[in-house]
Computed example of a mutant assay.
Amino acid sequence: MRLNRVVLFCAVAVGLPTVCVPGEGSDISGRWARGDGNAIVRIAACGTSICAVNTWIKPGTLKEKIGDKLIMDIRAGGNGYSGTAFDPQRNLTYRLTVTIAGNLMTTSGCIFYGTICKAVSWARLR
């Protein structure tokens, strides 16, 4: 079970006027590299939601592929975002928290009523 994609989910919305307003420097839109070096995601608006889509996966990385996406229903608050994220590839819904400090982001996703959680770090790409 990979909650790394939950983190993926955590970088959101190019063009989301109301979702990206928590505080200065906390916009999650754009491209983010996962802390383990195995993935790059693009976070942007997709319909009425925000999607994190894998744009690069390190060769040999199992269970992930380019084009996989996480569909997020998150709201801004404080220094980040919170809400839920749906992973259509695994048919799982996560409770999600995203915190942003400058060009660093941490995503934390939980499943099974908060009993299994994982945090992932991300760095903004220019």
Rank of each mutant, 00 (worst) to 15 (best):
L125S: 00
L125V: 02
R75G: 12
G47L: 05
D87H: 14
N4V: 15
S121D: 04
T97K: 12
T99F: 10
R124H: 12
G30S: 06
D36E: 03
M72I: 07
I74M: 13
I66T: 12
L104T: 12
C117I: 10
C46E: 04
T84R: 04
A44T: 02
G37F: 04
R75M: 09
L62D: 09
P22S: 14
D68M: 07
W122C: 06
N54M: 11
G30V: 01
V6A: 13
I66M: 06
R42I: 11
I57M: 06
L104P: 00
V120C: 13
N103P: 04
I100E: 03
L62S: 15
R124Q: 14
G77S: 14
V19L: 05
C10R: 01
G67I: 07
I40A: 00
I40P: 00
W32G: 03
C10H: 02
Y113G: 14
A123M: 11
I74S: 06
V7N: 06
F86G: 02
R34A: 08
K69M: 12
A123G: 10
R2A: 02
R124G: 09
I71G: 00
A101W: 04
V98L: 08
W56M: 00
G109F: 00
V98N: 10
Y94W: 14
G109H: 04
L62R: 15
C46G: 01
A52C: 12
R95P: 02
A123C: 07
R90P: 06
G80T: 04
T18P: 00
L96I: 15
A45S: 14
G30P: 03
R42N: 13
G78A: 14
T107Y: 06
I43D: 00
R42D: 13
P88C: 08
I116L: 13
P22Q: 11
L70Y: 10
V14Y: 09
V41P: 01
S49W: 07
